[in-house]
């Protein structure tokens, strides 16, 4: 199975403090605030965790199915990709 990793592009500035992540789109000056779960997912994706592995670990940490976790993680990834804030690497 192909595994997907994310890296930030030069258009993204960000910070995570506690459970609060803020993302700055340096092209449009738009800001994206992430909720607690989004912050956790974002941090782990930036740390190099694969999308699929991360989704599987969320099943244990939250009350969700693997399918739902994959949907949620991919939704966040798709949103960041659409804004050009991250690049995807398939391994």
């Amino acid at each position: 199975m192909a595994l997907t990793k994310l890296t930030p592009t030069r258009h993204l500035a960000w910070q995570v403090v506690g459970e609060c992540a803020i993302l700055l789109d340096l092209v449009t000056d738009a800001t994206i605030g992430l909720n607690l779960t989004g912050t956790l997912v974002f941090q782990r994706l930036l740390a190099g965790e694969h999308v699929e592995t991360l989704a599987a670990s969320l099943v244990d940490e939250f009350d969700v199915t693997l399918d739902q976790a994959l949907v949620d993680v991919r939704e966040l990834v798709a949103s960041l990709l659409a804004r050009g804030l991250v690049e995807v690497h398939v391994e």
Binding site: C20, I22, T31, G33, T37
Partner: peptide, 24 residues
């Protein structure tokens, strides 16, 4: 998955001020 709702920059900034975080 549950969590606090997404927030904008102003809300985040106010929270950072409350916590005394040197954002800038």
């Amino acid at each position: 998955m549950k969590g606090a709702p997404p927030q904008g920059l102003a809300t985040w900034w106010a929270e950072m001020a409350r916590r005394a975080v040197p954002v800038n």
